[in-house]
Computed example of a mutant assay.
Amino acid sequence: MADTEQTYKFDVKMTCGGCSGAVTRALQKAQANGPGISSYDVNLDKQEVVVNGSIPYDDVLAVIKKTGKEVRSGGVVPKEVVP
Results as ranks from 00 to 15, higher is better:
A30F: 01
L61G: 01
V50Y: 13
K9V: 08
C16S: 10
Q6T: 05
L61R: 08
V63W: 01
K13N: 12
S54A: 15
Y40M: 05
P56W: 02
K9E: 07
L44Y: 04
V71N: 11
V77N: 09
R72C: 05
V63M: 08
V71P: 13
V42M: 11
D59A: 14
D3S: 01
P78I: 07
S20K: 02
K29F: 05
R72H: 07
A30S: 12
K66N: 15
C16F: 07
D41S: 15
D58G: 06
C16N: 03
V49T: 10
V76M: 09
Q47L: 01
Q31I: 01
S73K: 15
A30K: 10
I55C: 04
V42W: 05
V23A: 11
Y40I: 02
S54N: 10
K46D: 02
V81R: 09
R25S: 12
E48T: 14
A30W: 00
Y8S: 02
L44Q: 01
K69S: 14
V60Q: 03
R25G: 06
P78W: 10
C19Y: 04
I64E: 01
V77P: 00
V23P: 03
V49H: 12
K69V: 11
Q47H: 00
S39Y: 05
C19A: 09
A32F: 02
G17E: 05
Q47T: 06
D3A: 14
D11L: 09
T67P: 02
T7A: 09
R25F: 11
N33V: 05
T4W: 03
P78A: 12
K79P: 02
I55A: 15
A32L: 08
T15G: 03
S73C: 07
S39E: 13
G36N: 11
M14I: 05
F10K: 03
S54E: 08
G68Q: 10
S39C: 03
D11S: 14
T4E: 13
N33G: 15
L27F: 06
G75D: 05
A32H: 00
N33L: 12
K29M: 06
L61S: 11
P56R: 12
N43R: 09
N33E: 15
M14E: 07
V76E: 11
E5C: 07
